[in-house]
Write a protein that binds this DNA or RNA. Structure first.
Length: 891
RNA sequence: GCCGACGUGGCGGAACUGGUAGACGCAACGGACUUAAAAUCCGUUGGAGGGCAACCUCCGUGCGGGUUCGACUCCCGCCGUCGGUACCA
């Protein structure tokens, strides 16, 4: 028989609560709020303590969806909360803020349906999220709450955009600089426009008429599957020149304390590859085809060329005889999305243009084709095809009967290496590895690396090419046609763009009659005719920014969220990002080692943001750094990804599977402390792990047992401090288990191993549970350990204990210093030692801690068990690992 | 295909830098309390075999090899699960 979940709910709520979490949790939340217990002063505030080091611990702030929190949110949030509370008790100034990434399509979709301003729905959702988070007892400094849709916030998002707009990348200095410097040098307006970090370009985008917006490549499939149409068409778009920073974004990853996997993901995304640019003269024409290749050493094997169908030279090169075929093919490609083009890539397709180009290395004429396996968006949009040494070219050449010329021979040593030779010829039919050049008169016999260098130098000398570094990273398509996003602070006049005056920021979108898409690629804001018309001849830009914009810098705003004069006050920004503050340089700098580039000390969030958000934020941060607006080159010093929480069935949580767990329900039944504790007890933070209601009950029982160690209920069911608690000496066993816990919990919080920290606290409580009388002082110490994990119950017990034992428990537990362990309680005078014979455990003996190695050897050899197993054999070796074991090798 | 993570009892997971595998919790079983149940408290619990018994023996960290006195841990080769990515020249 299966009970429905609603039956279980009823059973649970009727069950008597094992401890009054439903009373104490709201009580302490109210206390913290009314006393502003977790308000964090900034440098300059009267209560700012400059002698303390700083710690900035940040969560990836949520998009406040209509569904409310799911149990995945509190996982990372609890982890950071524990660290924040711990660091505070350790004497740090802790910055631990929360806010809302509140622009976004769902709110706009709601507005389209209801005609209601998206702000109304957004605010409702924010209120719900805030309520839910407060109910979990997080120690955020709510005075620093921010909302990306708040005009006061939008103002600075737009201000940063203008910094990008007013800057260019100085390749020599490797830095962003104001375009003013170029004006001073006499550059023309057009020249300047062509180098701005924020620029306008006409590029093919994924346009969805019914959504009324362009979509990022990675969004296309999702919306298509929901029945929306998406087509490709060229549109005028705002772009951000992130590619200029590719090298720095890649190189400076190195100094960051991020998971290696994430660094690798970013570095692959940036996709640096070294090679050569080579120029091929088009036969009988002026035009030159530029290609990029990582294998210039295979130039002699280039038997044809391929241009992307959109390549600008296609028209010039195509011969009259081939024109119709080429046009047909190009039309076919244009109607396909990038995704379709790659998805349907089972067979290579393409058309001969009829034109030829000259291979610069040997003067041979080779045919020029177009094919959609060459992408306009990578490299130069054209390739030299070397079918003998590139799998794709090989496939294409085989398909269309183009010549294949071998120019690299696999070296003997690699041929001999163990691998199956049979399938090699079958699946690839070409050799793509490194070897020795053949059929290449200029450098026959040279190994690949040398051949590359030689041909590149030759090309450079002849002016036919040069060493080139290419990046996969593309410029960032930054404009959307939505309503619910930051408008661009840009005006248009006579076909030219201008920045809105800084004094006019923020540019706020107008109220609309309705929020329905225009049905054309015209942005929604173009319907607000009055607003668009800035002056007689001046119109406003009607695109809006993507959701990423706000999240690119929110961590900076938290340093000083109320500042109206700057994105964040200089002093506050420097203090929270570097630890330096006026008058406390020594103390502040101590928190930051010489190699520490500064930034947020701990940033926790999901892997889904491994690339885009983290890359975009790093990009903006570097621009702001170059322009002198922030003090560190990187925003996030240490990054940790929490693992996904699966449903109880081990499947991804989803509405359709019906396995979604709502934190509100968990709190209702077991309390916020149990929710927090279980989220941390499930397993390692970074790991994927399934939810378990039984597991929540387990930690709930632990908290109830903790409660009963301190509290005793009378006949009427009223709780009072237990009579067992005295001002007495703790037993040896209690001291050992407690100090072991102090040591373990301290180390485990530092290494974010919360699950094992909780185990250790459980052992502690198990020890206390059995005691006849309990030492008040040690119980108070235990509450310090529990406090970051279960702040409500620990605070309540601390205040109960303090009422009778004020010497051991006074003030707010959350503000009392973290305990230190005393190593002397952990030292045992007798150690249990394992005796192995040939690596197998045969006996265990108790020895004094002072026994020498010789003593131990003798003791081990005397053991009855050893004699039994070593009988008749020679002792060859005795290995003694002090404090651990003795291994006797016989044979 | 490529890249990354992972694989330990019935389950979630522990195990420091190579040194007693299975901490802690869940589930299960037995006992105490109770008229009874729930809750609580105490105990047992990797598998197989043996002993009246305290206990003893063998096997055991996905599979196959290797290094080592000793391997969950290091190396080589497979298999499987999950996540990311996709013609990047």
């Amino acid at each position: 028989m299966v009970l429905s979940s609603s039956c279980l709910d009823v059973a649970m709520s009727e069950r008597r609560k094992q401890y009054p979490f439903d009373e104490i949790e709201p009580k302490w939340q109210h206390y913290w709020e009314t006393h502003a217990s977790f308000r964090t002063p900034n440098p300059g505030d009267s209560d700012f303590d400059s002698t303390r080091p700083k710690f900035y611990v940040l969560d990836m702030y949520p998009y406040p969806s209509g569904q409310g929190l799911h149990v995945g949110h509190p996982e990372g949030y609890t982890a950071t909360d524990i660290v924040a509370r711990y660091k505070r008790k350790k004497g740090f100034n802790v910055l631990h803020p929360m806010g809302w990434d509140a622009f976004g399509l769902p709110a706009e979709q709601h507005a389209i349906k209801t005609g209601e301003h998206p702000r109304i729905n957004t605010e409702k959702n924010v209120a719900n999220f805030r309520r839910q988070l407060k109910r979990i007892g997080f120690c955020y400094d709510w005075a620093r709450e921010i909302n990306t849709t708040d005009p006061a916030y939008v103002k600075w998002t737009q201000w940063i955009f203008l910094q990008l707009y007013h800057s260019y990348f100085d390749a020599e200095a490797g830095k962003a600089r104001p375009v003013k410097e170029l004006q001073a040098k006499g550059w023309t307006r057009d020249q300047i426009d062509s180098v701005r970090l924020a620029y306008v370009d006409e590029i093919p985008v994924n346009w969805s008429p019914d959504l009324g917006t362009v979509l990022a490549n990675e969004e296309v499939e999702e919306w298509r599957s929901k029945g929306h149409t998406v087509e490709r068409r060229p549109l005028r778009q705002w772009m951000l020149r992130i590619t200029a920073f590719a090298e720095r974004l890649l190189d400076e990853l190195e100094g960051l304390d991020w998971p290696e996997g994430i660094k690798l993901l970013q570095s692959n995304w940036i996709g640096r590859s070294e090679g050569a640019g080579v120029r091929f003269q088009v036969s009988g024409q002026e035009e030159v085809i530029d290609v990029f290749t990582t294998r210039p050493d295979t130039l002699y094997g280039a038997t044809y060329m391929v241009l992307a169908p959109e390549h600008p030279l296609v028209d010039e090169i195509t011969t009259p005889a081939q024109r119709d075929a080429v046009e047909d093919y190009r039309r076919g490609c244009a109607s396909k999305s990038e995704l379709e083009r790659t998805e349907l890539a089972k067979e290579k397709t393409g058309v001969d243009t009829g034109g030829f180009a000259v291979n610069p290395v040997n003067g041979e004429e080779i045919p020029v084709w177009i094919a959609d396996y060459v992408l306009m968006s990578y490299g130069t949009g054209a390739i030299m095809a070397v079918p003998a040494h590139d799998a794709r070219d090989h496939e294409f050449a085989t398909e269309f009967g183009l010549p294949i010329l071998e120019v690299v021979r696999q070296e003997e040593s690699t041929v001999d290496s163990p691998r199956s030779t049979a399938d090699d010829s079958e699946d690839r039919g070409c050799f793509t590895g490194e070897g020795v050049a053949i059929n290449s008169p200029l450098f026959d016999g040279l190994p690949t690396p040398e051949a590359k260098a030689k041909i590149t130098a030759w090309l450079e000398k002849k002016g036919l090419g040069e060493k080139t570094v290419n990046y996969k990273l593309r410029d960032w398509l930054f404009s959307r046609q939505r309503y619910w996003g930051e408008p661009f602070p840009i005006l248009w006049e006579d076909g030219r763009h201008h920045a809105v005056d800084e004094g006019e920021l923020p540019v706020v979108a107008p109220e609309m009659e309705d929020y329905k898409p225009t049905g054309s690629p015209e942005p929604l804001l173009s319907k607000a005719v009055e607003w668009v018309r800035y002056a007689d001849t001046v119109r406003r830009e009607t695109n809006t920014m993507p959701q990423w914009a706000g999240s690119c810098w929110y961590y900076l705003r938290f340093c000083d969220p109320g500042n109206d004069a700057r994105l964040a006050g200089e002093e506050a920004e420097r203090y929270w990002m570097t630890g330096e503050s006026p008058g406390t340089d020594a103390a502040g700098a101590a928190g930051r080692g010489a190699n520490n580039p500064g930034g947020v000390d701990l940033y926790i969030g999901g892997t889904e943001h491994a690339v885009l958000h983290l890359l975009y934020a790093r990009f903006w941060h570097k621009v702001l750094y170059d322009l002198g607006h922030v003090s560190t080159p990187e925003p996030f010093q240490k990054l940790v990804n929490q693992g996904l929480i699966l449903g109880e069935d081990g499947q991804k949580m989803s509405k359709s599977r019906g396995n979604v767990v709502n934190p509100d329900d968990v709190i209702e039944d077991y309390g916020a402390d149990s929710l927090r504790l279980f989220e941390m007890f499930m397993g390692p933070l970074e790991q994927v792990k399934p939810w378990s209601t039984k597991g929540v009950e387990g930690v709930y029982r632990f908290l109830a047992r903790t409660w009963r160690v301190f509290m005793h209920s009378d006949q009427e069911g009223n709780w009072g401090l237990s009579d067992k608690i005295r001002d007495c000496e703790a037993t040896k066993g209690q001291l050992t288990v407690l100090h072991r816990a102090i040591k373990k919990v301290t180390g485990d919080i530092e290494s974010l191993s919360f699950n094992t920290a909780i185990s250790e606290m459980m052992k502690c409580v198990n020890e206390f549970t059995q005691a006849e009388q309990l030492p008040a002082r040690e119980l108070a110490t235990f509450l310090h350990l529990l406090n970051p994990f279960a702040p409500h119950i620990s605070e309540e017990l601390f205040s109960q204990l303090g009422a009778r034992f004020p010497n051991y428990a006074s003030g707010l537990l959350a503000h009392q210093p973290w305990p230190d362990h005393d190593e002397s309680y952990l030292v045992e005078d007798e150690i249990q030692l394992v005796i192995q014979v040939n690596g197998k455990v045969r006996d265990r003996i108790l020895v004094s801690a002072e026994a020498t190695e010789e003593d131990l050897k003798a003791l081990a050899l005397e053991s009855e068990k050893v004699k039994q197993f070593a009988d008749g054999k020679t002792v060859r070796k005795v290995i003694v690992v002090p404090g651990k074991l003795i291994n006797i090798v016989v044979g």
